[in-house]
Amino acid sequence: MDYKAYRRRKLILCIALFLSLLAVSLFSLSSGPYHVPLREVLAVLLGGGSKDDRLVLLGIRLPRIVAGILVGASMGVAGAVLQGYLRNPLATPFTMGVSHGAMFGASLAIILGAGYSLNSGQIFLNNPYAVVLFAFLGAISATLVILALARLRGLSPEAIVLAGVAMSSLYSALTTLVQYFANELQLSAMVYWSFGNLARATWRENAIMAVAFAFVFAYFLIKRWDLNASTLGDEIAKSVGVNIERERLIGTLLSAFITSVTVAFVGVIGFVGLIAPHSMRLIAGGDYRSLIPLSALAGALLLVSADTVARLIVSPMTLPVGVITSFLGAPAFIYLLVRMEGRR
């Protein structure tokens, strides 16, 4: 097999993943307590269909699926990029403290009066924008602290990862402190917020996530060679003309940024940033030219599938999608660890 055939195979994998994503999305659109046959789904997507169908599909299911695609793709790309720049297979924006920071931000907003929850599982947010804004600021702040340190003191990739662990721990302590002083209704709102729920995203949220994702995705596609160089070590990266310290800072910041945007809107949904890039690396290799789009597609496919399972498995009840991704993620994660250890 020559190099061009090898490259072509990756393109085919890309197309296969895209078609799978399309198929799962259509299935997800038609399934649920209110069943819509596939023919009607297509009619609605093409601008026709009955009024009820349009309401259910365009008002409820489609925004949720689009959110799944955007969040999954964002986390897949962010994970792939961080693993490359930090040369650490466990790196994701969540290991940089994004999830714990978001949890702290959201909890703080809630205790300051932005929302409460009755035990029905519904969060009542008096001020949803405050929660989103606080969660976003909390999420990005951990990374900003680490990157400021890295810039001032020239931290190595290993030190950046360890600093992320420290920031996560700091933010979970702060969250515990806030929860300690919260009343029951606020406390349950915090817990429900932490579950992560794609239904929180409406068209407006989706539009914001799409813009953020498109910008960051394009940036990383342009930087694909720098990412490849980074995986070989800083010295080689510098030798082929990559300003590796700068690219590492920008790459880490942008990864944390798209993740923070999605976490602020839909809450914490774990493991996608770990499974999507690693599975693609094992299947198609570590070339970031294909790894970036493949990780985006795999992340989207994974999250939309998980969310569909979460909606249907105990229908009409909906499980938190984070539970499903973690159920998938924990064994996949252990499998990867075993495989990596076996290589030594």
Binding site: Y3, Y6, R87, W225, N228, A229, T231, L232, G233, E235, I236, K238, S239, V240, G241, V242, R281, L282, G285, G286, D287
Partner: peptide, 29 residues
């Protein structure tokens, strides 16, 4: 600089990049 000077370090991190793509990085400049 990278068009004039090439540096071969003592150690290279093995990874998931193919040999071809690794050498292709030399063309990045």
């Amino acid at each position: 600089l990278s068009r004039i000077l090439a540096y071969v370090p003592q150690r290279v991190e093995p990874g998931f990049l193919t040999v071809f793509d690794t050498v292709l990085l030399g063309r990045r400049p």
